[in-house]
């Protein structure tokens, strides 16, 4: 067994998940592939969204994958960092907007 939870080389083995559940695995990868095709959004826009979400999900495999994917698409480091800030803003906003719930509760209990 590996001594660490994450091994960068494991990303290459992602496809192996189909080995223990063929139908579901294959359906997932088919869906995944479709999602990233050029559509109403460009593949480049989708790559940047994926990079931001990779960070909010804190998935190291996804961060590796979509940083490289962005470079391949000619995305600049400034664009990448801005995308991550979008994710960070939503994350912090999501925390802070719950402050209203806290305020409501305080007002109800101690108003």
């Amino acid at each position: 067994m590996s001594k660490t939870y994450y091994d960068p080389a494991d990303l290459r083995k992602f496809g192996k998940i189909t080995e223990w559940s063929k139908d579901l695995g294959e359906k997932f990868f088919e869906y995944y592939g479709k999602v990233f095709e050029e559509g109403a959004l460009t593949a480049r826009e989708k790559s940047l969204i994926a990079l931001a979400v990779a960070h909010t999900e804190q998935c190291p495999y996804c961060i590796d994958a979509y940083t490289k994917d962005g470079l391949q698409r000619g995305v600049t480091k400034e664009e990448m960092m801005e995308a991550i800030h979008v994710g960070a803003a939503i994350k912090s906003g999501a925390t802070l907007v719950h402050g209203v719930q806290m305020m409501n509760k305080v007002n109800k209990l101690d108003g």
């Binding site: 593949a43 480049r44 490289k68 470079l71 391949q72 698409r73 000619g74």
Partner: peptide, 10 residues
């Protein structure tokens, strides 16, 4: 150390 993206998109 990465591959080129889609030629048409680039």
């Amino acid at each position: 150390a990465f591959l080129p993206g889609d030629q048409t998109a680039m």
